[in-house]
């Protein structure tokens, strides 16, 4: 990807985030999990960027760092040119208006006691100069944007009176009402019917097209990422294993893990009838080298002598990189 970090909307530079488990008092050794391990990532503005990986890969941790729900243990996270670590109190609150997030489960992320108008207009209370009428107009405009039409009929409904898809639209309206410059969507359709998911994806495409907001889309599904995203980064155990334009990552995947993610998609309707790559072992290997490739234990292609070191991202095509010794 073209990297001009001054212009990029989001930059992660050498970001490591550790989670420590177990109490030091009770167990001799404290277990440390590297949720993100020296990750470098540049997300250009005005695009939809996909962060793809399975549960526990670190993709949600990356999102939480971008909105500064968490801080990195080392490295820097910059959003819209500002180092997030340097922002505190009032400045952080003000800056956060530009960065919004939507979550997996619209059943949990909306307050059941708040009506739609209350949910969507709440962020506007930060804008003291707006009059009540202006706020209402903005709420109606945003509800129309997210396809809740006619908007006035939704104002006084409560989350339990809405379908799952409508609730996620309300959550998107709440995120968009402040006209953010960055929108982070963490598996926004995983709790929705497959037939509703497409509606939400289409809505995200429409919003991005109109507002030019930079979107980060977090998913485990490469087909969904391919549909939505301009660029895709595949992440596993805290490391980016492959990154590039969606088309080249999907059509010429280089990393065995990306290939395994493609193999795992339900076969019907996809271009490939059969599993093409067979890169993931059913039984993980046991001879795991320290500081070797993170995918070693499950990779069918790995060789101990080669993969006992940690691979770095190297070029695999135009703007396309993969971290594997075997390419």
């Amino acid at each position: 990807m073209e990297t001009d970090s001054r212009k990029d909307a989001i930059v992660l530079a050498g970001v490591t985030r550790l989670y420590r488990s177990g109490s030091r008092l009770l167990t001799a050794r404290q277990k440390t999990i590297r949720a993100l391990d020296e990750v470098d990532l540049n997300i250009p503005p005005g695009c939809i960027f996909g962060l793809v990986g399975e549960s526990g890969s670190g993709k949600t941790t990356a999102a939480r760092l971008m909105v500064r729900l968490e801080k990195p243990d080392s490295g820097t996270v910059s959003v819209l040119g500002r180092d997030m670590a340097g922002l505190h109190g009032k400045h952080l609150r003000r800056f956060r208006r530009k960065i919004q997030m939507i979550f997996q489960d619209p059943y949990q992320s909306l307050n059941p006691y708040q009506s739609v108008i209350s949910i969507v207009s709440e962020p506007l209370s930060l804008r003291r100069q707006m009059t009540k009428d202006q706020r209402l107009d903005k709420v109606l405009e945003t509800l129309a944007l997210v396809g809740l039409d006619p908007p006035s009929t939704y104002l006084h409904r409560y989350p339990h009176q809405l379908s799952g898809g409508q609730r996620q639209r309300v959550a998107i309206a709440r995120a968009m009402v402040l006209d953010p410059q960055v929108l982070i969507a963490d598996e926004p359709t995983s709790m929705l019917d497959a037939s509703i998911a497409v509606q939400i994806y289409r809505l995200m495409l429409k919003i991005q097209h109109r507002s030019k907001v930079t979107m980060v889309f977090i998913t485990h599904n490469l087909a969904a990422a391919n549909y939505l995203c301009d660029h895709i980064a595949v992440i596993y155990r805290g490391r980016i294993l492959e990154i590039g334009p969606s088309g080249s990552v999907i059509n010429s995947p280089c990393h065995p893990y990306t290939q395994a993610l493609l193999d795992a998609l339900p076969r019907f309707g996809h271009i490939w009838k059969e599993r093409r790559f067979d890169t993931m072992l059913d039984e993980p290997r046991s001879d795991i080298p320290q500081n070797g490739c993170v995918f070693y234990s499950r990779c069918s292609k790995a060789e101990y002598s080669t993969c006992r070191r940690q691979p770095v991202l190297k070029s695999a095509g135009r703007d396309h990189k993969a971290a594997c010794f075997l390419i």
Binding site: A194, A197, V198, Y201, L222, A223, G269, H270, I271
Partner: peptide
């Protein structure tokens, strides 16, 4: 038709 596939 609503199902997302890898087909472009």
């Amino acid at each position: 038709e609503a199902h997302i596939t890898l087909s472009n």
